[in-house]
């Protein structure tokens, strides 16, 4: 299938490209030959009915699942054999559909864990208050606070996730993903559990953090958010990409209409 994109040619170097991804669990095919071409500077929407394989595709991209076939590359680097942690080291981060904040850490500390890879302090400063370790912690705290502030939840910084409403927890996850200045940001249903106002704020915040070197992919059932935010959209159904292109093109695609009407309009 040809990747068509209407707008001006975006940056092609450093693109995240997946080709021919096949994934199956116990004989059931979850992904069937998925191709993706994700360019820096573009926000890509990934939509599809429940069980279409969106989360599984994210899991393949981040290395939690191993595709049976197909390859994935970020720029010139083949990702296929890299562990999730190594991929994180290349600047790929994500949020999770099922909330994955530690209940033992405050929201701010949870966001600070997003900086783990960029922090260098050794075990000595883990136990002793050494000046360098301290400075680094201060810096991490400041950056995490800035990320929370960007998403408008700085007020909840010192609370533990179980005490927070789901919307704030989601934003916290996004802040954790953003704080390290990622190259690739994968968001799995960031607006689930958010009310209309929160969703609008989230859309604005995501627009604000977008920059020309960032690859952002959003899985979402909220079509308003997708239409407002995305430059291109992939539609997944039963593990296959059934359409891709600009929001307008996808919206007009008969196949997509059929799937969405068939699956109950969302």
């Amino acid at each position: 299938m040809a990747i068509i994109h209407a707008e001006a040619a975006p940056e092609t170097r450093g693109a995240l490209v997946a080709s021919g991804i096949n994934l199956s669990f116990g004989g059931i095919d979850v992904l069937k030959g998925v191709d993706l071409d994700l360019r820096p500077g573009l926000v890509t929407g990934l939509i599809g009915p429940n069980g279409a394989g969106k989360t599984s595709l994210f899991n393949c991209l981040t290395g939690l699942y191993h595709p049976n076939r197909g390859r994935i590359a970020l720029g010139d680097t083949a990702l296929d054999v890299l562990s999730p942690a190594r991929r994180a080291g290349l600047g790929m981060v994500r949020s999770f559909q099922h909330m994955a904040l530690s209940p033992d850490l405050t929201l701010l500390e949870n966001v600070m864990t997003g900086l783990t890879l960029s922090r260098r302090s050794g075990w000595g400063s883990a136990f002793l208050p050494m000046p360098r370790g301290r400075a680094e912690t201060q810096d991490a705290r400041r950056r995490a606070m800035a990320a929370l502030d960007e998403l408008g939840i700085a007020g909840a910084a010192d609370l533990a996730p179980p005490e927070l409403p789901p919307g704030t927890q989601r934003l916290g996850e996004i802040a954790r993903a953003l704080v390290g200045g990622p190259k690739v940001l994968l968001l799995d249903e960031p607006a689930a559990g958010l009310n209309a106002v929160e969703t609008r704020d989230l859309t604005r915040a995501l627009r604000r953090v977008m920059h020309p070197a960032l690859i952002m992919v959003v899985v979402e059932h909220d079509m308003d958010l997708i239409m407002q935010l995305c430059d291109q959209i992939y539609v997944l159904n039963f593990g296959k990409v059934i359409a891709c292109g600009s929001p307008e093109a996808v919206q007009a695609d008969p196949e997509v209409l059929r799937v969405y009407l068939g699956a109950g309009d969302e």
Binding site: F96, A100, S102, L105, T116, R119, G133, G180
Partner: peptide, 20 residues
């Protein structure tokens, strides 16, 4: 510390921790 918080995250959500 960095290590302490990383361990707490890994205990609660090993997969999320791996993604960071």
């Amino acid at each position: 510390s960095r290590q302490g918080m990383a361990l707490l995250l890994a205990r609660a959500h090993p997969r999320a921790a791996e993604a960071f």
